[in-house]
């Protein structure tokens, strides 16, 4: 059997203002798996992802990454192992130039100058953005920014990639180009989205999250054809127009 990349046991999280974020999440993700986390807006997808490299640490429940429990001592290593890519690339590209951004992680790891440059250059090549080193984030298209955001995480050589809503705000061409890029990456991947087309293209396994709870977990080809299940969680249009009003 393959090793566990991520093991979550009984995880619950409530925001400081009392909003419930997650309730009793239990899930194991194996090395090399590509898992889609789908669910309607506000389901808790982002909240879950933020637990995967210790941005949120909940007292209720247990999160283990590559066999290490998230805690003070392990956090630095875990942040290197888990690359988290945020939904809005403008939140992630905070440095003045593309190069500075891609080099930010390696510099924080304390790598020597040459290694920082090597990694940044290589990461940009991976995402097809070599030659963009000196460009400014505010002069890039959303698609380009998203690619740079991936490079900024790949430069840390993560074992696990965690991506929040990768295709939001992309036009079809940028979207399919981006899906190709993600398909080419071989590490363990967790992708949160409600773009079922993309999930179908990239993930072998799908988890449905709704109201902070896991309501389904199984192979993509089984979950994505279960129209009733998808409808029940706002992931597919209802058959009869007008019915959706009553449900909410």
């Amino acid at each position: 059997m393959r090793e566990k990349a991520i093991s979550i046991a009984n995880l619950s999280y409530t925001y400081p203002d009392g909003t419930p974020g997650l309730q009793g999440i239990c899930v194991d993700i194996l090395r090399g798996e590509s898992v889609g986390v789908i669910g309607p807006n506000g389901a808790g997808k982002t909240t879950l992802l933020l637990h995967l490299n210790g941005i949120f640490v909940s007292k209720n429940g247990n999160v283990e990454i590559l066999g290490k429990k998230i805690g003070k001592e392990s956090i630095k290593g875990i942040r290197r192992d888990v690359g988290l890519i945020f939904q809005d690339p403008d939140d992630q590209l905070f440095m003045p130039t593309v190069f500075d951004d891609v080099a930010f992680g390696p510099i924080n790891m304390g790598l020597p100058r040459e290694e920082v440059i090597r990694r940044a250059t290589q990461a940009l090549r991976w995402v097809g953005m070599d030659g963009y080193e000196k460009r400014l984030p505010h002069h890039l298209s959303v698609g380009e920014k998203k690619r740079i955001a991936i490079a900024a995480v790949l430069s840390l050589n993560p074992e696990i990639l965690v991506i929040d809503e990768p295709t939001s705000n992309l036009d079809p061409r940028a979207k399919w180009g981006f899906i190709e890029l993600l398909r080419g990456l071989t590490m363990t991947r967790i992708i949160a989205s409600h773009d079922l087309e993309m999930v179908q293209a990239l993930c072998e396994r799908v988890i449905i999250l709704d109201k902070g709870q896991i309501v389904a977990d199984g192979p993509t080809e089984r979950i994505l054809v279960d129209v009733e299940l998808l409808q029940a969680h706002g992931l597919a249009p209802d058959n009869q127009a007008g019915q959706s009003h009553k449900q909410h």
Binding site: N53, I55, F86, D88, D91, N108
Partner: peptide
């Protein structure tokens, strides 16, 4: 809200207060 998200993005890439550039 954005400031919070940016800060999380920085943390997740190992930010500990060091902001060197090459």
């Amino acid at each position: 809200e954005r400031a919070e998200r940016v800060y999380r993005a920085m943390l997740s890439r190992g930010y500990e207060g060091n902001l060197q550039t090459l």
